[in-house]
């Protein structure tokens, strides 16, 4: 199983230090949460790891291979997937079309037409159509398959983004606020889905403001404030950490 290793990641925008020496790792089958106040630098970490922006310094490695210098699409081919906080769906395509494009793009670069990383079908060999249907089914989107994504509510659109990312069969996936826009029931089911994906070997790095969900599904957590990791550990450790409480509510007056 491959592991994402981020070490000493630093991003500077002009004079501002947006992310400073962030190190974290996500192994296959693991769910790691990344939380912190607004503006702490979570999405910047995602952008730097996925190659959307170039970090000032630091290293990103996937399965032991340094991918820091690779463009975004090569990182994706190495097995890194992501979703976006501000939706990046193909809004003029249908739900099925979105997932289909993810799968077709993967087939265009993956030499064997597929790769071993497959988390939804227990390794069964699937035709493209049935793989798409399977993904839609698991995300409860089958009923909406022919809807144009641009017309969907945010919650559903986020699931479409997740489905599309899964169709590319990443080994590690970065999820940026995937549950915002879902109601309570949907969030619970979503948590179960994340669990089953990680159970099948997918490594997940999760940014999410629904702290309840984060606390419930994550194996470990990192708390980011002012671009630095101020606390790490499991849910209870983080909840008890005084620095975290301060970061969220401001230093006590």
């Amino acid at each position: 199983m491959s592991t994402l290793e981020v070490s000493d990641l630093t991003v500077r925008f002009g004079g501002n230090l947006a992310v400073s020496k962030v190190s974290l790792s996500v192994a296959g089958g693991e769910i790691v949460g990344l939380i912190g106040p607004n503006g702490a630098g979570k999405t910047t970490v995602f952008n730097a790891v996925s190659g959307v922006i170039t970090p000032t310094s630091g290293k990103v490695a996937l399965a032991g291979r340094d991918i820091s210098k690779l463009p975004t699409y090569k990182r994706a081919r190495a097995g890194l997937g992501r979703t976006f906080q501000r939706l990046e769906v193909f809004s003029s395509l249908s739900v099925r079309g979105n997932v289909q494009v993810g799968l077709e793009i993967r087939k265009s670069w993956s030499r064997r037409g597929g790769c071993d990383r497959q988390y939804l079908a227990d390794g069964a060999d699937l035709s493209a159509d049935s793989e798409v249907s399977l993904i839609l089914d698991r995300l409860d989107l089958l009923g909406l398959a022919d809807e144009i994504v641009g017309a969907l509510p945010t919650g559903q659109a986020r699931l479409v983004e997740l489905g599309r990312a899964l169709a590319a069969r990443p080994s590690i996936i970065l999820l940026d606020e995937p549950a915002s826009g879902l109601d309570e029931n949907e969030t619970t089911r979503f948590g179960e889905l994340l669990r089953s994906l990680s159970g099948a070997g997918l490594g997940i790095l999760l940014v999410e403001h629904d702290v309840g969900l984060v606390m419930e599904v994550c194996d470990s957590l990192h708390v980011l404030d002012f671009g630095t990791v101020i606390a790490s550990g499991d849910a209870d450790e983080v909840r008890q950490n005084a620095a975290v409480v301060d970061a969220y509510l401001g230093a006590g007056t």
């Binding site: 106040p37 607004n38 970061a247 969220y248 509510l249 401001g250 230093a251 006590g252 007056t253």
Partner: peptide, 9 residues
């Protein structure tokens, strides 16, 4: 404000 005790003061 999202998180600030200061503003409450």
């Amino acid at each position: 404000e999202q998180f600030a005790r200061a503003v409450l003061g």
